[in-house]
C-alpha cells in the first residue's frame, strides 16, 4: 500500500497577516504587528479558524492581509500610487455582515479571484471602529483603470452586494491629504 503524502494546496502568493491595536502611548508603527505568513489553503484556514473573528475585536483594531513583502501602509512602494475599494458598514452590520464580508474578501484575495488583474491587488484591511467598521481592498496603481474597475466589479459581486449599491475607490494620496472626512472617489462600480 502506497500512502500518498499529504500535499497542501499552494496559493499563488504568500500572504502576511498583520494586527493593529490602537495604543495611544505608542507610535503608529509600533502598534502594527506582523502575526504570521501563509502560502497554502490549509495553512490559511488553520490561521483563520484560530484567530478572533473580526466582530469580536475591540474598537480601534485592524486586521490586514497583504502579499508578502508589502507593508499595510500608504508609504510602501507598492501602495503609494495606489488606492482602495472601500466598504463602509453601519453599526448594525457588525453583527450581521462584518465577519462574512471579511471572509469573502480573504477568499477573493487568496483564490486570486480577480483573474490576471489579481496581480494589481496589494492586500485588504478591516478596521473595527465604534463609528462604523470598514473593509478595503488595496490595489497598487490608481492609473490602472481597467484593473481597478474589474477588481471593483468582481469584489462587489463576491460580497453579494446589490447592483444598485455603489462602492467607491479612493486614491491613498487623496485620503492622506484630505482636509475633511470626505475623500473623493476616483472610480465607482
Amino acid at each position: 500500500v502506497v500512502v500518498e503524502p499529504h500535499v497542501k494546496h499552494p496559493l499563488q502568493n504568500r500572504w502576511a497577516l498583520w494586527f493593529y491595536k490602537n495604543d495611544k502611548s505608542k507610535m503608529w508603527q509600533d502598534n502594527l504587528r506582523l502575526i504570521t505568513k501563509f502560502d497554502t489553503v490549509e495553512d490559511f484556514w488553520a490561521l483563520y479558524n484560530n484567530i478572533q473573528l473580526v466582530s469580536k475585536l475591540s474598537s480601534g483594531c485592524d486586521y490586514s492581509v497583504f502579499k508578502d513583502g508589502i507593508e499595510p501602509m500608504w508609504e510602501d512602494r507598492r501602495n503609494k500610487c495606489g488606492g482602495r475599494w472601500l466598504i463602509t458598514l453601519s453599526k448594525q452590520q457588525r453583527h450581521t455582515e462584518l465577519d462574512r464580508f471579511w471572509k469573502e474578501t480573504l477568499l477573493c484575495l487568496i483564490g486570486e479571484g480577480f483573474g490576471s488583474f489579481s496581480r494589481d491587488v496589494c492586500g485588504a484591511v478591516v478596521n473595527v471602529r465604534a463609528k462604523g467598521d470598514k473593509i478595503a481592498v488595496w490595489t497598487t496603481n490608481t492609473e490602472n483603470g481597467e484593473a481597478v474597475t474589474y477588481i471593483g466589479r468582481k469584489y462587489k459581486e463576491g460580497l453579494g452586494l446589490p447592483p444598485k449599491l455603489v462602492i467607491g475607490y479612493q486614491a491613498h494620496a487623496d485620503t492622506a491629504t484630505k482636509s475633511n472626512s470626505i475623500t473623493k472617489n476616483k472610480f465607482v462600480v
Binding site: 490549509e42 484556514w45 483564490g111 486570486e112 490576471s116 489579481s118
Partner: peptide, 20 residues
C-alpha cells in the same frame, strides 16, 4: 499557470483539518 481557487473550493477546506 496561475493558482486560482474558487470560493466554494476554498470553503471546502475550512473544517477539514479539524475533522481529520
Amino acid at each position: 499557470g496561475k493558482r486560482q481557487y474558487k470560493r466554494d473550493f476554498l470553503l471546502g477546506f475550512q473544517f477539514m483539518a479539524a475533522c481529520t
